[in-house]
Computed example of a mutant assay.
Amino acid sequence: MGPMPDTTDADAHADAEGLTVGQVAARLDVTVRALHHWDEIGLARPSLRTSAGYRLYTAGDLERLHRIVVYREIGLGLDRIRAVLDDPATDVPDALRAQRAQVAERIERLKRLDTGLERMIEAHERGLLLTVEQQAAVFGPRWDPSWPAEARQRYGDTPQWRQYAERSAARGPREWQAVADAVAGLDRELGEAMDAGVTPGSDRAGRLVGRHREVFAAYFPLTRQMQVCLARMYEADPAYAAHYDTVRPGLAGWFRRLVDADARAHGIDPDTATWE
């Protein structure tokens, strides 16, 4: 709240002949509509009228209006302002203390909002809001801390990156550990299913493909068409293929066939699937 305006000249002028609604609105930086409303509800009525019926405010009226503006600026509602100004039973310091407590609560909410906005900005720019040490602890020694920056460079303009950033902004080490555990659990399930001879198109294969979409949703929602593209990238990209080979040799190719079969079962041609 800024300093109180210097009203000496205005008050002298008001004492002499009164100020119009427009003049008061300009001096107090309020709207004419607000002044009319305060007049209509009896909160601040002009004491004088011209012969033509126009409102004129006296110095006393201006003093009351200044107090209204100050109280309104600190957040008091009009009914509460009326009580502070007119009700002798109102304890003004107590009313102001209560308002100050509400302001303090609002400041804390704004601080939390500011922190959330800062994290959201960082998540859009960095992807993963963990230190290098935290990343190693969560994702293991094979994790390369340069991967998030590479992903940002490659996918930063996509809707999926924005969805990922929104999820990332709300996560700390504990939440990311839960994601990492779910991914590791899925890898174990896939390895065990491959050992058991699960074939593309089987019921168990369909459940595994669905489980993959469910786990992957921790990053962003994955459609079946997108899943086809992703599974083919797992097989074609050396880094992804090497990861899945550590689970079971040839796992990426085997999983790609499961995904292709599931896509066909849902009317999707894997050979023409696109990222949508």
Results as ranks from 00 to 15, higher is better:
residue 3 P to H: 15
residue 3 P to S: 15
residue 5 P to T: 06
residue 15 D to H: 14
residue 21 V to P: 04
residue 22 G to E: 06
residue 23 Q to T: 08
residue 24 V to S: 01
residue 24 V to R: 00
residue 25 A to I: 09
residue 29 D to H: 14
residue 30 V to K: 00
residue 34 A to L: 14
residue 35 L to V: 00
residue 35 L to P: 01
residue 36 H to F: 13
residue 37 H to L: 14
residue 42 G to V: 12
residue 45 R to H: 04
residue 46 P to N: 03
residue 47 S to T: 10
residue 59 A to Q: 09
residue 59 A to M: 11
residue 59 A to L: 10
residue 60 G to C: 06
residue 61 D to P: 00
residue 66 H to F: 08
residue 66 H to S: 11
residue 78 L to F: 10
residue 79 D to F: 05
residue 80 R to I: 01
residue 93 P to H: 10
residue 94 D to A: 15
residue 96 L to F: 06
residue 98 A to Y: 08
residue 104 A to R: 15
residue 110 L to W: 10
residue 111 K to T: 15
residue 113 L to A: 13
residue 117 L to F: 08
residue 119 R to S: 05
residue 120 M to F: 12
residue 122 E to K: 10
residue 127 G to Y: 05
residue 131 T to P: 09
residue 137 A to I: 08
residue 137 A to W: 07
residue 138 V to K: 01
residue 144 D to Y: 13
residue 148 P to N: 14
residue 149 A to M: 06
residue 154 R to I: 07
residue 158 T to E: 14
residue 161 W to R: 03
residue 169 A to T: 07
residue 169 A to K: 04
residue 170 A to H: 08
residue 170 A to K: 14
residue 174 R to S: 13
residue 181 D to K: 06
residue 183 V to Q: 10
residue 184 A to Y: 02
residue 189 E to Q: 15
residue 192 E to K: 12
residue 195 D to I: 08
residue 197 G to A: 02
residue 203 D to V: 15
residue 206 G to I: 01
residue 211 R to P: 04
residue 214 E to V: 10
residue 215 V to L: 03
residue 218 A to K: 07
residue 219 Y to P: 03
residue 221 P to W: 03
residue 223 T to F: 02
residue 225 Q to N: 12
residue 228 V to E: 03
residue 232 R to Q: 15
residue 233 M to D: 14
residue 235 E to L: 10
residue 238 P to T: 11
residue 239 A to P: 01
residue 239 A to R: 14
residue 239 A to I: 11
residue 241 A to M: 05
residue 243 H to S: 09
residue 243 H to Q: 13
residue 245 D to Q: 03
residue 246 T to E: 15
residue 253 G to T: 08
residue 255 F to M: 10
residue 255 F to G: 00
residue 257 R to D: 07
residue 261 A to D: 00
residue 262 D to T: 06
residue 262 D to W: 01
residue 266 H to E: 04
residue 276 E to M: 09
